[in-house]
Nucleic acid binder design. Structure first.
Lengths: 114, 114
DNA sequence: CACCTCTAGTTTGTTTTACCAACTAGAAGA
DNA sequence: TCTTCTAGTTGGTAAAACAAACTAGAGGTG
């Protein structure tokens, strides 16, 4: 739970990131948490990831399937539906827009320190 | 209210942006809404901006002062406190972190379309 | 066998924050 | 007088991240 400072800024972004990752390869909650870690999202708690996955499935963005595991309980693999892929593309353009806007404001700040 | 799609992703980001803008030059709610528009945040509703400014003042991040206006009601000018400037710097590093992380995931996606 | 650890998922409730809707009000022009 | 633009406040709602408590399987150690 190291990165709870950026917790508010995560909102909406996490869902988009999951859609991209799961579209690359279907995966399950426990593994996704570890994979997010590789991308700098250190210790996204399971209290965040599991409910999000379930909500996204309810919304019709993801579909899921249980698969047996050799060393532990069953794993619930998620992958994007067609609607999920549409949402993914929507996220990509929205993120780019947000990034552009915020960067232009942040640049104001940086030019002060020259 | 055109950009309510990105509404969730705005969370936490807006406060940081206001701190930067108000540190450049103190301003009041109505004008800030228009200024945000220049940076691509089109039509951030006043139901967002006014309560946010008040909350930030309650938190001690902003201070305010009423000034007369020649053509309308009084204007409440806001500017960052010392705590507000600290929060601004914190936002800058947190935003950079988030941007880096999301970009690395978004890049996965873009490499697929080569 | 009892206990612990790692893996894996669910559920309930809380907090933060953007936003809507309704309201008050001043100044200027038709 | 009425409308429009400017300017701010208040109350309530919805979405999303997160903590905490719970259930469980598999494997190892004392």
């Amino acid at each position: 739970m190291a990165s709870n400072e950026t917790s508010q800024m995560l909102k909406g972004v996490l869902q988009g990131c999951l859609l991209i990752l799961l579209d690359q390869s279907p995966s399950y909650g426990y593994a996704i948490t570890q994979r997010l870690d590789d991308f700098g999202f250190t210790d996204v708690p399971k209290g965040t990831i599991y409910p999000l996955l379930m909500t996204m499935e309810k919304k019709g963005l993801l579909k899921s399937e249980f698969r047996e595991s050799a060393d532990g309980p069953k794993r619930k693999y998620y992958s994007p539906t067609t609607a999920g892929q549409t949402a993914k593309h929507k996220f990509l353009t929205e993120w780019q827009q947000l990034e552009t806007n915020v960067t232009s404001i942040v640049n104001l700040e940086e030019h002060d320190h020259e």
